[in-house]
Design a protein around this nucleic acid. Sequence first.
DNA 1: ACATACTTTAGAATAATTATAAAGTAGTTA
DNA 2: TAACTACTTTATAATTATTCTAAAGTATGT
Lengths: 140, 140
Amino acid sequence: MTKMNNKNKIFIDKLRSSGLRPTNQRVEISKFLFNRKKTFHFTVEELKSSMNLKRQKKISTATFYNTVHALKSAGHLKEFSLENNTSCYDTNITSHHHFFDNGKVIDIKSDKITFQKLPEAPKGKKIKNVEVVIRLENNN
Amino acid sequence: MTKMNNKNKIFIDKLRSSGLRPTNQRVEISKFLFNRKKTFHFTVEELKSSMNLKRQKKISTATFYNTVHALKSAGHLKEFSLENNTSCYDTNITSHHHFFDNGKVIDIKSDKITFQKLPEAPKGKKIKNVEVVIRLENNN
DNA sequence: ACATACTTTAGAATAATTATAAAGTAGTTA
DNA sequence: TAACTACTTTATAATTATTCTAAAGTATGT
Ligand SMILES: [Mn+2]
Ligand SMILES: [Mn+2]
Ligand SMILES: [Zn+2]
Ligand SMILES: [Zn+2]
């Protein structure tokens, strides 16, 4: 078992609160995802490629999927579908919106969009969340 | 070749304007999609199942995909991704929004949602469209 | 160390979609 | 209408994203 220095505690805690033991692979994934200044968006395939690029011993696809799903279920990641029907994960778990610009996804802070009018939920239902996608195209 | 009565003209025109010759299979698909009072949402698999159910000679999967894609490209259908990453097509091609209610998709007329504030597009870009998804959950 | 439980992984299996290429059909010409 | 050509349909293979399985590996408690 690895010697864990205290500076990894926050990444380990995200795993523990997702019901995952902090194994080496998982801690590396958690650090890769959350040890940064800015949040970002990624697909599992992108995550796997960029993390495995620098590694001698590759982390398996299943471990990436399992870990990402657990983090997502615990609320440490948000998930949405890209236009090509693949899952995109977001380390920004605050409520916010997106620009879709030809495959590129850009955050829109929640307070940049406000509503004048919103429909009521059908009876028996209530609103869980409201998400806006603004699709962009090139000028002219 | 089939004898086309005039009442199919509108469905045939949608095919022609999509760059497709109005073959029997295509006309049947076009009628199935557009010969109704209310618009609806469907996946290719659902379309195939429901149309082939009543047929002796089945229309092939490829023909469904090809026809739906051509209609979509010509603007006769809109496409969006469901949460399980499959394509959902919409015969309502007006600009509008959706409730997502556990896999069920419900239209929200465009005028039911208005914005108080919307962000500007990044420089060099402009807004192509704005789509809102309101996710629902059960009350209580 | 032993036993037990959890983890990792390669590879198989699924599901949605796209590509291929042969056989069928329609449109045009002679 | 026969022949020619172009477009269509379809079965089937291929791809891609994702999930499942089962065996081998690793950690934890005693
Ligand atoms: Mn998933
Ligand atoms: Mn498609
Ligand atoms: Zn985001
Ligand atoms: Zn709709």
